[in-house]
């Protein structure tokens, strides 16, 4: 299956953007920690955090500034591919923001970012109580 995430770079990844956690606390995007996402999801009534392991990263066929990242999602290891701009940041457990092209992410967004690699475990969301 394939999921399309926003193909233009959303404004909330720009350094200094104010993010509201589920308990109302405000933080800058560059200051977010793994625990902030986990605790926010615990409070949330409809969202839960899933672990998404990067299985493959490829350049896109359609355009050079896009990458296709294949994830193995959740306990059932569902295969999900997303096509994203190479500078699109994902949050890696215990590590922080990472992208296919961290230099570009830092250049465009000033967001401190490391290189997204195969084996990295990213934070993703799914719906609670699907059945």
């Amino acid at each position: 299956s394939s999921t399309v995430v926003p193909t233009s770079l959303p404004p909330y990844f720009i350094k200094g953007s104010i993010i509201q956690l589920a308990d109302g606390e405000l933080k800058r995007v560059e200051d977010l920690k793994t625990e902030d996402f986990i605790q926010s999801a615990e409070i949330s009534s409809d969202l839960k955090i899933d672990s998404s392991t990067v299985e493959r990263i490829e350049g896109s066929i359609s355009a050079s500034n896009f990458a296709v990242v294949q994830f193995s999602v959740g306990e059932h290891r569902a295969q999900v591919s997303v096509e994203v701009l190479v500078e699109y940041p994902f949050f890696v457990f215990g590590q922080g923001w990472s992208s296919c092209c961290p230099d570009r992410t830092t250049q465009l967004l000033e967001l401190p970012c490391t290189k997204l690699s195969v084996g990295d475990v990213c934070i993703s969301l799914t719906l609670k109580n699907l059945r």
């Binding site: 404004p11 909330y12 953007s17 993010i19 405000l26 999602v73 719906l127």
Partner: peptide
């Protein structure tokens, strides 16, 4: 100053069962 909800930063990856 705009304030964004935490969940907008996280990609929504809905797992699909491949039974």
């Amino acid at each position: 100053v705009p304030v964004f909800p935490w969940h907008s930063l996280v990609p929504f990856l809905a797992p699909t069962q491949s039974d």
